[in-house]
Design a protein around this nucleic acid. Structure first.
Lengths: 345, 345
DNA sequence: CGCTAAAGTGTAAACGTTTACAAAGACAGC
DNA sequence: GCTGTCTTTGTAAACGTTTACACTTTAGCG
């Protein structure tokens, strides 16, 4: 593992000073055409690759952005990272990726590591924005950051999100207007996700809007993949639900499976809708009716905004992107369709 | 954005030299208990965070590993990255993540950027290991790297993979022994994935093993999500297939949907099996019969091995992990079950 | 008390860049 | 030829750490 050549060796080989080599590389300052050639050759001959660590030390710019996500196992986050990476690359930045596994303690630790690495900014999703120590910590650091998926704490925070309450209310409202009167909800651990809470709030509002009495919400862990127990419970209730709303697509997919395992057909016997809009929900059969968050786009926008703040000193802003409903095949009118109590559809 | 405090300011505040502060931070060299206290306080008071860029310059160690994946949109890669991140974190390393979008040109460019960032090693999946310029490039760099998912080029390369040929042969062989005589295959773009080719080879071997004549393989792009056209084509063949093998789970899921859209029931009318073992395949209904690659584990092992090479000078090695079959619900005996020509099951 | 060894601390030189500043050369205008 | 301007190049000082080396203090021991 011979040491990598340095700018000094290139300079020696080209018979110029290191300053000149630096100028050739960065295209700053004036260099005669002849020298430029010579140096270019020397660079090629030595296989020189500028050491961005040395450069970063001098320029006080690392060229990296920190990224912190709860997990990459939920495709919604993987998609966001994909967008983040694309936009970062387009802007000439690299990303340092970490994940918290939904643990607030790890959030703080991971951010600390990123700050030691002198990331110029961060893009992150925290478990719960309202209680996050990680954000307090970050506020104090004066390193700009953009939250993705999380709701806004205050107006002077940069966030890229969708209106979770409105979206949940919208999709559940449609179930109501389809004629569903008993709509259950399975929500991911509210401790680990403020989104879960917001979606629950939207769900409850939709029930109220429809004049339905709230039903209890089943809270499960994020990694729950086997919901058959919970599905059985739901069916055992006196008037069982005719529809299920899940706080994430992963849960909804598991819910469909749970009901199918109990012999129900989707959507004939029960409707199931999700939230996130992960691609696989669209590919499966029945395709999942859900709220689509433009995750990749959100990641890109987050980075673009971050770079504006970094390079142009733009102010923080709250960016709420529009969500989309995917009219999948997993929902339908309830069999014993009764008109909703409110206004007819 | 006041400048971050440096070791010098901590030293001044604690009334000691920078060397002492450094010693306290790294626990190297001897420092009296009293000084240790004083310095610790000064660090806390100033909110000092060691600049790993400065450190890296001196120690010639960046503490980062480079990661290059084709895309994060396929959960199999996201899972691998998850494992990579976990193991890297456990080993005290950070990861610099890039993706190639399956484009060989971007592979080279991305690696170049990573090398400029002086990653101490790389974990990557290239489109095609046998033709990859990226790997030639990397070989010349003398930075250790580990391939994941790709097959081994030569014995002195580090790789972590499964036996794609054997696995494909295994699962397709089971279809044969179930009684399927006409098994179609949909494969992802072979240009963009050597895995696709290996799985195809395994598929063809299984057909030969079973005394079946090879049928043409349909090649599609990786981002193909609507396979209904291809499904229709398959059904239009004179004796249509009774089973479909797809080179990835994402394709298999789309295939299930394609057939379902044409009115077929899975697995009653046609069996569909995939390859990868992404989690969502297990959650959906019918659950996907597939070859499970331990992606997260593969990512972890890759990093563990890389760190062994880095820190203990261990030699490169080829690590072929066992695959697992998931006996999902998407396959069954063909309706018009005929015993296979070969040995009975 | 004097000697030696060990422990604690400081000094200063790296590491690979960038860049302010200085210097030198070329050239034009007088 | 002198002056001034512009272009090209070099010198050297940062940037924030680590660490070899040297120095001072302390402790142990005769």
């Amino acid at each position: 593992m011979g040491k990598a050549p340095t700018i000094r060796e290139v300079a020696r080989r080209a018979g110029v000073s290191v300053a000149t080599v630096s100028r050739v590389m960065n295209g700053r300052g004036s260099v005669s055409e002849k020298t430029r050639q010579t140096v270019g050759e020397a660079i090629r001959e030595t296989g020189f690759r500028p050491n961005v660590i040395g450069r970063g030390l001098k320029t006080a710019r690392s060229g990296t952005l920190g990224v912190l996500m709860p997990s990459l196992r939920n495709p919604i986050f993987a998609d966001a990272v994909q967008g983040i990476e694309r936009a970062a690359e387009a802007g000439g930045y690299r990303i340092l990726l970490t994940s918290s596994n939904y643990l607030p303690d790890k959030e703080v630790a991971a951010i600390d590591v990123l700050l030691c690495n002198r990331v110029e900014g961060l893009v992150l999703t925290v478990a719960d924005e309202s209680t996050s120590q990680a954000l307090d910590f970050l506020d104090r650091s004066h390193v700009p950051f953009v939250l993705v998926f999380n709701p806004a704490r205050t107006a002077d925070h940069s966030i890229v999100t969708i209106d979770n309450v409105a979206a949940a209310r919208d999709i559940v409202g449609r179930l109501v207007r389809m004629g569903h009167r008993r709509i259950a909800m399975i929500a991911g651990d509210s401790q680990a996700s403020d989104r879960s809470n917001l979606r629950r709030a939207g769900y409850e509002q939709a029930l109220v809007d429809g004049g339905l009495r709230p039903s209890p919400v089943i809270e499960v862990g994020f990694d729950s993949r086997d919901l058959v127990r919970h599905c059985r419970f739901l069916l055992s209730c006196d008037p069982g639900p005719t529809a299920l709303f899940c706080s994430t697509d992963m849960l909804a997919i598991a819910g469909i499976r749970g009901f199918a395992a109990l012999g129900l057909r989707i959507p004939d016997d029960i409707s199931v809708v999700g939230f996130d809009g992960i691609e696989v929900g669209e590919c499966m059969s029945p395709s999942l009716a859900t709220v689509v968050q433009p995750a990749e786009d959100m990641g890109m926008r987050a980075v673009e905004h971050l770079l504006e703040r970094l390079n142009a000193g733009a102010p923080a802003k709250n960016l709420t992107l529009p969500y989309r409903l995917r009219h999948g095949e997993s929902w339908a009118k309830p069999r014993e369709a009764t008109a909703p109590t409110g206004t007819p559809v």
